[in-house]
């Protein structure tokens, strides 16, 4: 993601974490599919946070936390549910221009170990 003006959304992290639902509970083994958002160098950090807040109804704190996870770790599981649910979310995310994929939950690992540039495209070198 990219910052075009001032950074800052992450400065409030931790203030209201108690009010946001825990992302850990969403990756419980009984929930079979995850919606993953991948980092890319184009989408604005503010825009990604706006999409998480307006579409999922997440608090600013939670939206920024997930956005920073995408930015720093390369990907983040932002929602979970049935296959149909996460597929519907994925289409909505594609509508917003975010890079979303769906995957089967791997069973409680959290699934955030991936740090590749994203699905299907490697990092091309310039020149």
């Amino acid at each position: 993601m990219t910052i075009s003006v001032a950074p800052g959304p992450d400065t409030q992290e931790g203030i209201r974490t108690g009010t946001a639902e825990s992302t850990d509970s969403l990756t419980a083994p009984d929930i079979p599919w995850n919606l993953v958002i991948w980092n890319d160098p184009v989408n604005l950090m503010s825009y990604v946070s706006y999409v998480f807040q307006s579409y999922f109804g997440y608090s600013e704190t939670k939206a920024n936390k997930l956005m920073m996870e995408v930015h720093k770790k390369g990907r983040s599981i932002v929602a979970a549910g049935s296959k149909e649910q996460v597929e519907r979310h994925a289409v909505a995310m594609h509508g917003f221009g975010l890079w979303a994929t769906v995957e089967k939950a791997s069973g409680g690992t959290g699934g955030n170990s991936g740090k590749s540039g994203g699905p299907g495209q490697g990092k091309g070198k310039r020149g």
Binding site: V36, E87, V91, H94, G95, G97, A100, T101, V102, P119
Partner: peptide
């Protein structure tokens, strides 16, 4: 603009495109 919905799975992504790409 219209990315694959399943990483490293062209067939599953294509099936999804058939259902959703037009409306996207």
């Amino acid at each position: 603009l219209l990315p694959n919905v399943v990483k490293d799975d062209g067939a599953a992504s294509l099936e999804f495109r058939q259902l959703t790409e037009r409306s996207l």
